[in-house]
Each structure stands twice: as C-alpha cells, then as structure tokens.
Design a binder for these strands. Structure first.
Length: 104
DNA sequence: AGCGTGACGAACT
DNA sequence: TAGTTCGCCACGC
C-alpha cells in the first residue's frame, strides 16, 4: 500500500481529464509543496498504472520526461495523441493549451 | 537516526 | 542556447 502522500499525488492525477495534461509542478502546487521531486518519486512508484494516468503527467517544458524505455516512451506519447493532445514526437505543441490546473 | 537517491524545476554560468 | 548546480521532500538502506 502507498503512503498518504502518494495517495494525494494519485488523487491529483485522477483529476486530470482526458485530453489534458498536467506537470509535476502543478501537482506539487496542488499538494501545497515545493518538492516536485517528491511528486516525481510518488508517480514513479504508482501501484496502478491504469488508475493513475501517469502518461498525462509531463515535465514543465512539455516533454515526456524520464519515462522508462521499458514502457516505450513513444507509446505514452501516442496514447496522449489518441486522447486529443497534440504532440510533436516528444514535445507538446502548446502546453498551456492542454495544461490542466487544479482548483484551489 | 542519518545519508543518498530520484519519472523535477528554476536559476546560474 | 545549452550544460551544470542547487533546492525542494519523500523513501529506501
């Protein structure tokens, strides 16, 4: 089982609607913390890849981040494209256009 | 209990 | 413009 912090991160991810993406920074902001690293750590340890749409979490620059090659990073990109997110190979065309901001 | 690591981010050189 | 450094916090050893 995961820790309370992890659950918060997963909860944030689940709020991201299909066709939109969020960044580690946004999640950190939602959790009211400056530790985006802790968020990244939490996401990386997600127990449910299906329940936690980690493919909708990208870097602040809009690229896919250090997604393990085992999962074939381009697959993540393709998945996002199917959800309606316009991506240029590894770069999101207009991050602001698809970025989801959490309600505070 | 303390130290190092990490799917990041922003600032600096 | 690109590469490097520091800071942030949670987690494993």
């Amino acid at each position: 089982m995961s820790t309370a912090f992890q659950k918060r991160v997963y909860s944030a991810q689940k709020k991201v609607p299909r066709g939109s993406v969020t960044t580690y920074g946004m999640i950190a902001q939602y959790l009211n913390t400056n530790a985006v690293r802790a968020v990244g750590t939490a996401v990386s340890k997600n127990p449910d890849s299906l329940n936690t749409p980690c493919h909708r979490v990208v870097l602040s620059k809009g690229n896919d981040g250090d997604y393990p090659a085992e999962f074939t990073s381009h697959r993540k990109i393709k998945l996002l494209q199917e959800e309606g997110t316009e991506i240029d190979n590894v770069l999101i065309i207009d991050l602001k256009r698809y970025l989801y901001t959490f309600k505070q």
